[in-house]
Simulated scan of single mutants.
Amino acid sequence: MTTAAPVAILLFTRSAAEEARHKRFVGHGPPGRNVSVAAQLIHHAQATAALAGVDVVCVDSSQQTGATFGERLADAMQQVFGLGYEQVLVIGNDCPQLAPHLLRQAVAAVRCGKTVLGPATDGGVYLLGISRRWFEQACWQALPWQTRHLGAALQQVCRQHKALVEFLPLLADVDNEQDLVRVLHQPLPRALRRRLRHICFAKPILRVSSSRRVRRLATTAQPHRGPPVTGTYC
């Protein structure tokens, strides 16, 4: 931790394999495509957070403790505050539209004592920024996480604490195939869009095994006096 930067970004995420088990991003093709999409989203979140100008703490599946999502997230937030940070911005891996300038805006807001909410189109949030003084672990873990009621519940908590709230632009989460198709038609970093489209829409390549290829070349290269011999095709 750096003393000049009391703000930390908490990237709260599953591993790519576990994320693919819970979410179906691609409804066709080999199962590995879902893992590949999840890996791209996680990598994008990590790269975006690294450009915000503050410390980044990643808490993945192997480091999370608790029976529910709320318990695991609240515990991760407590871990970050326990490192000495005064403000924490919580992000996940499922908002590919989240850009570095939005994170820097959120950093500036929490440094001024504000709570920051990045509302998602599904009723949740893609970013939550709070100060240590507003954090009560039991209260935060009991919120309706992973539901469309989360955004409203967070605003209610902020009103109860009389906290000043800064809202970021409304952005889309990606939790399934329909979400991914929609977000690919929204503004995205060019490289990320290209990689996601390649994973989702690339057609499998039919390959001829080397032994069959050699056999076919051998049969077509040699002339036959009798009836033609049937070749091997894929």
Score class of each variant (00 low, 15 high):
Met1Ser: 11
Thr3Ser: 15
Pro6Asp: 15
Thr13Phe: 02
Thr13Asp: 03
Glu18Trp: 12
Glu19Pro: 02
Val26Trp: 04
Val26Ile: 13
His28Tyr: 08
Pro30Asn: 04
Gly32Ser: 10
Gly32Trp: 11
Arg33Cys: 08
Ser36Arg: 14
Ser36Asn: 07
Val37Glu: 01
Ala39Pro: 07
His43Ser: 09
Ala45His: 04
Ala47Glu: 15
Thr48Phe: 01
Thr48Asp: 09
Ala49Val: 01
Ala49Arg: 00
Ala50Cys: 02
Ala50Ser: 12
Val54Lys: 01
Val56Asp: 09
Val57Glu: 08
Val57Met: 12
Cys58Glu: 13
Gln63Ser: 12
Gln64Phe: 06
Gln64Glu: 07
Glu71Val: 05
Arg72Phe: 03
Arg72Leu: 04
Leu73Ser: 09
Ala74Leu: 08
Asp75Trp: 13
Asp75Ile: 04
Ala76His: 04
Gln79Phe: 12
Leu83Gln: 13
Leu83Trp: 09
Gly84Cys: 06
Glu86Arg: 14
Val88Gly: 09
Leu89Glu: 12
Ile91Phe: 14
Gln97Arg: 12
Ala99Phe: 08
Pro100Ile: 04
Pro100Val: 01
Leu102Glu: 05
Leu103Asp: 04
Leu103Met: 06
Val107Gly: 08
Ala109Phe: 01
Val110Tyr: 05
Cys112Pro: 01
Gly113Lys: 08
Val116Thr: 02
Val116Trp: 05
Thr121Gly: 07
Asp122Ser: 00
Asp122Gly: 06
Gly123Ile: 08
Val125Leu: 02
Leu127Tyr: 09
Gly129Tyr: 07
Ser131Gln: 10
Arg132Glu: 07
Arg133Ser: 10
Trp134Phe: 11
Trp134Cys: 03
Ala142Met: 05
Gln146Leu: 11
Thr147Asp: 10
Thr147Ser: 14
His149Pro: 00
Leu150Asp: 03
Ala152Asp: 06
Arg159Cys: 09
His161Gly: 09
His161Tyr: 14
His161Phe: 10
Val165His: 13
Glu166His: 15
Leu171Asp: 03
Asp173Glu: 05
Glu177Cys: 00
Gln178Leu: 07
Asp179Glu: 08
Asp179Val: 01
Leu180His: 02
Leu184Cys: 01
Gln186Ala: 13
Pro187Ser: 03
Leu188Arg: 01
Arg197Glu: 15
Arg197Gly: 12
His198Gln: 11
Ile199Gly: 06
Cys200Lys: 00
Ala202His: 09
Ile205Lys: 05
Arg207Thr: 11
Arg212Tyr: 00
Arg212Asn: 00
Arg213Asp: 03
Val214Leu: 03
Arg216Met: 02
Thr220Asp: 05
Ala221Asn: 10
Pro223Asp: 08
Pro223Glu: 14
Gly226Ala: 11
Pro228Tyr: 10
Val229Thr: 12
Gly231His: 10
Thr232His: 09
Cys234Phe: 15
